[in-house]
């Protein structure tokens, strides 16, 4: 799977108490191309994000199927309960199958 040239940004707390509900904010650079060209040039091919998936300690946690109504630079916020130190993995995939990945660790205790 090839790399997606988009920079993901996360806001995740470093530490949490056992059983605490943490807020995870996810943002990725994926600007919207209007398709408009001065002088009637050819529009670029469609390139949209189709999926965001988040895992916690390897197990599925949250998935978003992104359709036409997705905003540019899509932003998502979820609320997660952490009982132990947890590793999160985030992946955004576009319609061409390219993906951007990042990870985060929340230390509990």
């Amino acid at each position: 799977m090839t790399e997606l040239a988009s920079r993901p940004r996360l806001r995740v707390p470093d530490r949490a108490r056992p059983g605490e509900v943490i807020e995870i904010r996810m943002l990725i650079d994926h600007p919207m191309e209007s398709g408009l060209r001065v002088g009637g040039g050819a529009a670029p091919p469609r390139n949209m994000l189709s999926r965001l998936s988040v895992t916690m300690n390897g197990a599925p946690l949250f998935e978003a199927e992104l359709k036409n109504g997705t905003s540019p630079n899509p932003y998502h916020v979820i609320f997660v309960r952490v009982d132990r130190t947890s590793d999160f993995a985030f992946a955004w995939t576009d319609e061409a199958g390219r993906s951007a990945r990042t990870t985060a660790r929340v230390t509990v205790g």
Binding site: A59, L61, F62, L66, G69, T70, S71, Y75, F79, V80
Partner: peptide, 21 residues
């Protein structure tokens, strides 16, 4: 179609905040 969100165990509450077009 705008989006479909799926929640799995570990999600503390059935809530998602986002931006749509």
């Amino acid at each position: 179609g705008i989006a479909s969100f799926r929640f799995h165990p570990g999600i503390a509450r059935a809530e998602v905040q986002t931006r749509i077009r």
